[in-house]
Design a protein around this nucleic acid. Structure first.
Lengths: 336, 336
DNA sequence: CTGTTAGCGCCTTCAG
DNA sequence: CTGAAGGCGCTAACAG
């Protein structure tokens, strides 16, 4: 490996001069510059980014920690993040936790000490945890983040209105005349899941409906889990006339289960999802859902992070309202 | 920021000792170890990974350069890659090129000099290009890679049989009795695209059919592009009775276009895709496609890369056969 | 077993 | 405008 020294010797100048022509950080006479450039060329010199990073105490690198990068929602967030960091010439490390506490912690640990910033959708890890590992590196949380205590001065936050969104979804169902409404919930004890459950309950209570525990399913945020959850719900006696799914991926599975059971959607059962992923438009029937656009969230998160890295001091929070998108998977219950 | 020196002083030992207890790289008496651990704790010391990396001349980091991480195919590849690198405690940087030459080059440049390895699906960049930027860091190409000259000694390769797969797809259509077969091709002049086109042509020639240029569409690998491509094909006079799509994402769009035109699939027109992404099972009708499983490719690529990084010297190549998965989007043409 | 010391490759004052 | 020298934080011989 050829170093700056080699280049300097070859060009008959000092390393400082080489550094200056490379980084354009000070005027260098055309002649020397030329010699340096030549030396670089002939020696096939490539600067060592690590050494530079150590020296400047900063590396153009951020991390994105999400449950699963192969989930369409998060893959779009990831793309949006990359698109903005790319403008700053920052790279992004992507980590999939599968919502496992152990992995959340492990990633934080392994990222600490070199990454310049982190965008994180935590399931279990708290603010305190995170700071313990990450120290003072900027963090922007995307999504809910329950623990609100402690020193959040190096934290930013971008999120949607999970509870409100869930409430809207269920109110939509109630407005259509549904009374027996199921809920396929995501992994319990996670911030997002809790808010959506709260919204579900709130809507029912406001309408004076009682919650039938048998109509609550707790599953993972996967299509297959959604399929199974829905299949189980459909066997209830009597089955729900409408089902709210904690996210669109679950809803996709639910749609599938309904089809398998010979259940017409929305004739026999209405289904509403959450997130509005791209697929939601393309299902049959197209999915009624709550919009919480991943592209916008990802972009906002990345922008906040870059601002932070560039020096902003005050914490910022952005919340997007969630809006109901009515498509064709919901209708009044039969006989209404 | 507290450094190893601080810890050493606080604990009344040398930095070497601190390093040893941290990395468990040599026996340290329980007493000293205890003191060091305490100092670390009370000073809230966090090792600087960059410095370590510089010193060890290696950083546990690889890059994955693909066209688009939000594309389901690549997001699954990415997940598979992460799952294996994770076992080695390596992080992975993800870059989306959108198939743009400029970006391919830029990512290679910005990654050079610090990343330990690269997994790359190139559209335009050649072997020579890549090496010029990357020097001797291990590279594994996933997918086709046309330029076969030069010193490939630091290269590995994992791919599927694009040409053979395409041929199978079209032969399947021909076997069903189709004679007028359209092709919605991916971006021209890219390795993968060329192979699939070659397979398409080959199948037609073997069957003694002539290629109708009007039935060839060149589009991007996106759903929307597929939709438009299909819409255009459907306006041909006479329209094709079957369409081969260069990948499943295009096929999803094609399915949509057919639906919009009131065209029954497979009644009026058969559609076959390529890749077998997860969605392919869930479309209506489920998509006949060529399997080139992203999970397996990603896993293999990552494993080859890690082996390389750990010292393997001989180049390796793995090719997976492509297999036809017949589902319900293909049938004999009407009146057959 | 512990401490000293010399790098890793680059950046950056600071004299000349 | 150029070059010498110190330092970024850590690792790895090599003495003791």
């Amino acid at each position: 490996m050829t170093t700056m020294r080699d280049v300097a010797e070859r060009a008959g100048v000092s390393v400082a001069t080489v550094s200056h022509v490379i980084n354009d950080t000070q005027y260098v006479s055309p002649e020397l510059r030329e010699r340096v450039l030549n030396a670089i060329e002939t020696l096939d010199y490539r600067p060592n980014k690590l050494a530079r990073a150590l020296s400047k105490k900063a590396i153009p690198l951020v991390a994105l920690i999400v449950p699963d990068i192969s989930n369409p929602y998060w893959s779009i967030v990831a793309r949006a993040v990359q698109d903005v960091t790319d403008g700053y010439r920052f790279s992004v490390i992507v980590c999939s936790t599968d919502g496992l506490f152990e992995r959340e912690v492990r990633f934080l640990q392994s990222l600490a000490g070199w990454v310049s910033g982190v965008i994180f959708h935590p399931y279990h890890v708290t603010h305190e945890h995170t700071n313990r590992h990450l120290g003072k590196v900027p963090v922007v949380i995307v999504g809910e983040f329950l623990s609100d205590e402690g020193d959040l001065v190096n934290w930013d936050h971008v999120g949607g209105d999970n509870q409100g969104g869930a409430r809207q979804a269920v109110e939509h169902l109630i407005d259509l005349g549904h009374r027996r409404i199921g809920f396929i919930q995501g992994p319990a004890d996670t911030p997002t899941s809790e808010r959506r459950l709260a919204g579900f309950q709130q809507a029912l209570e406001l309408a004076g409906l009682v919650i039938d525990e048998r109509l609550l399913m707790v599953v993972d945020y996967t299509r297959e889990a959604g399929r199974q959850g829905m299949a189980a719900l459909l066997e209830a006696e009597p089955p729900p006339t409408a089902v709210f799914c904690a996210n669109d991926v679950i809803a996709l599975g639910a749609l599938e289960a309904a089809k398998e059971c010979g259940c017409d959607v929305p004739g026999d059962v209405s289904i509403v999802g959450f997130d509005d992923i791209d697929e939601a438009v393309h299902t049959s029937p197209p999915l009624t859902t709550i919009r919480q656009p991943p592209r916008r969230l990802g972009k906002a998160a990345a922008e906040m992070l870059m601002e932070r890295i560039e020096g902003r001091d005050e914490p910022r929070r952005i919340f997007y309202d969630s809006s109901l998108i009515v498509r064709e998977s919901t209708a009044p219950p039969r006989g209404e």
